[in-house]
């Protein structure tokens, strides 16, 4: 038996044992609120964001969010390296017909508005840059699905993506120069609940939304652009 199989067997047995131990002893449903309670207490007054989740994601743990943006970027970059280029004479899927294209055209402005709304209101309502960005990407991808012959401008997407990512980091560096710490929220907090409030958090949210939107749109377009198998 090759080494690989033995290793898999050992691993599976160990995992089963671990699950048993965990299942028997864990106090599920009664989390220790050491840090969580403190966030709930001070996040509102300190950051001025009505949506505490965004206050944590873009404020207290903004650095993690930057890392997550980078992971998505790495995945999109790696995928575009692997997917490669389309032959000029490769077959394309046929257009989706009148109903699909009319539906896609109707959906496009709707998705765009919803996406932008969710991105811009990240510090007020549930959602934020990641969620809104995905909806923005979907707006462009629906059109692409209805009519596969359409293409997205990858160079433009690259620019949006690069500049939005750079904007996030530059806001952080601005804080480093201004305040001494990378990614400290700057600007006045304003009145909680208003669109212009919570300092730089909405700006970060917009940067995230644009980056995620452009990245996913590019990635999906790349996937759609891979050659259909010849039948």
């Amino acid at each position: 038996m090759p080494m690989r199989n033995i290793a898999s067997l050992v691993l599976t047995a160990g995992m089963a044992f671990l699950l048993l131990v965990i299942g028997a002893d864990l106090a599920l449903g009664y989390p220790d609120m050491r840090v969580g309670a403190e966030y709930l207490r001070i996040a509102g007054p300190e950051l001025g964001a009505a949506n505490i989740v965004t206050a944590i994601l873009a404020g207290y743990r903004g650095f993690d969010t930057l890392g997550e943006l980078s992971i998505l970027f790495a995945a999109a970059t790696a995928a575009s390296l692997v997917l490669g280029h389309r032959r000029a004479d490769a077959r394309r899927d046929p257009p989706g017909g009148l109903v699909l294209s009319a539906g896609a055209d109707l959906l496009f402005p709707l998705l765009l508005v919803v996406g932008i709304f969710i991105v811009v209101h990240g510090h007020l309502t549930p959602g934020g840059g990641f969620q809104g960005g995905v909806i923005l990407a979907a707006a462009f991808f629906v059109a692409l699905l209805a009519n596969p012959a359409r293409t997205l401008n990858h160079a433009l997407l690259g620019w949006i993506e690069g500049l939005a990512g750079a904007a996030f980091i530059l806001i952080g560096l601005w804080a480093l120069v201004e305040d001494g710490h990378f990614l400290t929220p700057l600007l006045p907090l304003g009145t909680m609940g208003e669109l212009v409030s919570a300092g730089t958090l909405p700006l970060l949210s917009v940067a995230i939304g644009l980056k995620v939107g452009a990245e996913l749109a590019g990635l999906l377009a790349h996937l759609a652009d891979t050659e259909a198998p010849d039948r």
Binding site: L66, G158, W159, G162, I169
Partner: peptide, 20 residues
């Protein structure tokens, strides 16, 4: 405090690589 820069600057450069 500048010790974050060796983590952050490569990210910035990576984001801007393709447009550049």
């Amino acid at each position: 405090n500048a010790i974050v820069l060796p983590v952050v600057l490569p990210l910035l450069a990576a984001f801007l690589m393709q447009p550049l």
